[in-house]
Design a protein around this nucleic acid. Structure first.
Lengths: 193, 193, 193, 193
DNA sequence: TATGAATGAGGCTTCATTCAT
DNA sequence: GATGAATGAAGCCTCATTCAT
């Protein structure tokens, strides 16, 4: 009992903090500058102890991917009109990119990696598909009420939104502006709600 | 003069082909998988000979950045309406991403690198600013004639376009669709096509 | 007494099965491929628990040596003529090499180790001396009756026999044939079969 | 021309001396104690430079096997009677085991390794087959003249001889005696030449 | 220009061992 | 007795770089 309370979470914490430290190192030095030694040092353990938690560097990277893509939209409330939901969603994204630009730099790094590493692709794609569903749901919901700009096609717009957010995160400084501009284009400006 | 006629061009070719080979390797294995040995092998020279052309790995990388960002829009004709010019520009981009996805993967890799390497940032930013100007020119030119969607602000739309193209290039498969969707949103739909 | 009845035998069994598992691992991967982790895994315990039974890897190795050299000739009946006894002895050896080649591979591995490790030499030599005595006894016993080939010198033949059996065990496939050939040479051919 | 005289042999020397150094280390510490660092140190080069000559430790080991099994019987003259040739051959072996016991210890180490490593087996077996042929030739040649002990079968005796020499080399101290005893048993003692 | 030898720093990983629980 | 966390020494190998030729 005691050990379950003590050891259990501790282990999770260690794994978690190693993944977190790795994420920070990637943000700082890039995937090509990631060194297990540095990660270990960041959490204050010997670099060989890392292998207790992650058999290989690749495994650690998988944990980083998992951590970095941990769904954030789950917190988004499902109520409100489609237009409101989209606005909130994009606002949240812009805010997060502004507050944690390194996280998004790492995400892009992982996107690139996914292009040549099937294992990474599996992790990244799974999470991205969830995001895709969330967006598709919003865009489809807003169609009947004419919430969107003329000629907007839901599924293509999902891809556009994802692409733009990703591209915007490559330049955190202007991300908010870019996302705002996107929102303005997507949402029907005139007349009806 | 003499060297340009005799050894010069050959050297330039070598440098060029080394940079090209490096670019391909980066596309294949990422910045973290780039090995001077592999690059040398790809052009058929000894791995130590590479240092006769590039003193350091970083220098080679600079050459890669230069090669990858070599302006492509210069070929774009300046005639036609703003709307036509934007369409042609986006079409060209979509076509290039489709035909040379690796080149764009490398560009994104370099974007990320620029985020932590001032030298790289200098190279990348210089070229991106040129692109920025081209786009700004187009968007401003189309304003008076009402070529664009309502509420479009030139400078913000430049950033949006750049971000979207970059983001789209992370998923070459759907890049054309994304860029087309963007074009549809930017260009005023009413008033005849 | 108490511990022999309760924990004692269990501990002995554990030690025994660890040594046995180690022996098998050595047969499989050689002394250079022996890993305590593998041995522990083979008997289903944690790799650190192994140190409760053997303080050090060397200690485990000593147990392996002990196990591998556990005298087998004790079962050999002492009755019959010297010639019969030799034949039975060699037959038994050939049969064991055929049925447990790995055991003999490990024995050779330990022989080699004994050449550079005094502790190992002590264990190995003690058992080999016992074997030596058994053989010497047989050869001397057969001398008066002229059981052996002409010019056979007991003590030198003991060494020859040991060397040949060892050498034969390096190639288990042909061991039986080699040992049979040795027997044919040792035993006087004339004077009836 | 100059470089051919200088660089050529030098390289061979380096590879050769690395293999030789490795052989000595194996003799000293066993296959399980072989460290590339030690080998490099013995030759006076940085341990990473070893990889210039041998891509992997396994490759170095192959060179060691090649060096250790380099045919020695080629020097044996082909003239004389079969009996004389066998005597000379066994004498030579006994002398070599006496003068270079470590070489033979390593050979046995490699024999064992060959049992679990096909690459090693290929090298070892090839050389052993040559030896086999030499012996078979001798034993068959002596058959008609009745040079051998009664009932000696050539091919089986080849195996016996090989096994005995190998076994003898495990105990260099008594090797000469063992081999002499073998010779006495093989060669017809009485009567005719 | 080109090469191959050499270097040394450093990378990931392994492993016997120890220790607290 | 058993475990899992932790260690640190060490192992093989890689790689950018230098240097003599």
């Amino acid at each position: 009992m005691d050990s379950e309370r003590a050891g259990g979470p501790a282990v999770l914490d260690r794994r978690q903090s190693l993944a977190q430290a790795a994420l920070e190192k990637i943000a700082e030095k890039g995937l090509e500058g990631l060194r297990l030694r540095d990660v270990a040092a960041a959490v204050g353990i010997d670099h060989s102890t890392i292998h207790h938690y992650f058999a290989t560097k690749e495994d650690l990277l998988a944990a980083v991917a998992d951590l970095a893509t941990r769904p954030f939209w789950e917190s988004s409330p499902h109520d409100g009109t489609a237009r409101e939901r989209l606005e909130r969603h994009l606002d949240l994204l812009a805010a997060m990119i502004a507050s944690r630009p390194e996280l998004y730099a790492v995400l892009r790094e992982l996107d690139l990696r996914a292009g040549r590493d099937p294992k990474m692709a599996a992790i990244i794609d799974a999470r991205e598909d969830s995001w895709r569903k969330v967006l598709l749901d919003v865009f489809e919901e807003g169609m009947p009420s004419g919430a969107w700009a003329e000629g907007l096609e839901p599924s293509g717009t999902v891809e556009l939104t994802i692409a733009t957010v990703k591209g915007a995160s490559l330049r955190p400084k202007s991300a908010r502006r870019v996302i705002a501009q996107l929102a303005r284009l997507l949402i029907r400006s005139s007349s009806a709600s």
